[in-house]
Design a protein around this nucleic acid. Sequence first.
DNA 1: CGGGATCCGAGACGATACTG
DNA 2: CAGTATCGTCTCGGATCCCG
Lengths: 137, 137
Amino acid sequence: MHEVATTNEEDQGLAALKFDVFARGCPARSTLEHVTGRWSILVLGGLDAGPMRFNALLRRVEGVSEKMLAQALQALRRDGFVHREVRTAFPPNVEYSLTPLGRETSAKVRGLIEHLEAHMPQVLAANEHYDQEQISG
Amino acid sequence: MHEVATTNEEDQGLAALKFDVFARGCPARSTLEHVTGRWSILVLGGLDAGPMRFNALLRRVEGVSEKMLAQALQALRRDGFVHREVRTAFPPNVEYSLTPLGRETSAKVRGLIEHLEAHMPQVLAANEHYDQEQISG
DNA sequence: CGGGATCCGAGACGATACTG
DNA sequence: CAGTATCGTCTCGGATCCCG
């Protein structure tokens, strides 16, 4: 089974070798899917701007439904990337923020997002080139 | 050199502002989905090790079906991340490799994957903590 | 070996309605 | 405001067969 109760750095290093996303049942694969899911990745990227409330996120991630946002937030929370803070008041006030691990992860995600955004002209050009080839070929 | 219409930094800045994954119909969003898709991200990470043939990839990305691998490769190829080279011989020999853009992108993806693999103990601990809270709460 | 075509079930997803 | 519950749609994805 998974022996992952580690406190010192040596054990951390050895434990890391046990996780391989390319392997069939590896838990790292599902975690990767939680992070890179259609909406999760945008939630993670969105929270990178700072703590946000539910409806603020709903507006920031255009097109997401309440159901999908709630679902994505739950998965990210379960994996320890997102923190949920409830302030009992009226009207109810719930704030979502990144945990330290969430911030590290979000930084990588944002790096990927910004890299893609910056190279979109190149991607769109590749699209057209590919489509032209399909017609002639 | 395959430059994409931009020589000065002003155009770069303006072009970059045009693509926002958080916006509804932005093409960058679908590109992001192609890259971070369930199998695509593993294909991209797998090809990072070097050029590979179809069945080699099929074995490396454990659990992927022929259909899904072919589909992921097509999308990555259309977006200009992956190059396909056919050698007419018998038996047929087809090799897949990363384009320059693909290598840059794969590096980011790989960084994310390795970061997650390294922190899996922390994630699994968060899972257990979360599940315990659900029972008591 | 490297795929394409087809069928089909499971789950993702969106819209709506309802609750604390 | 911050969700949960329910339902219908529709895409994803696996299994299988087939072809160059």
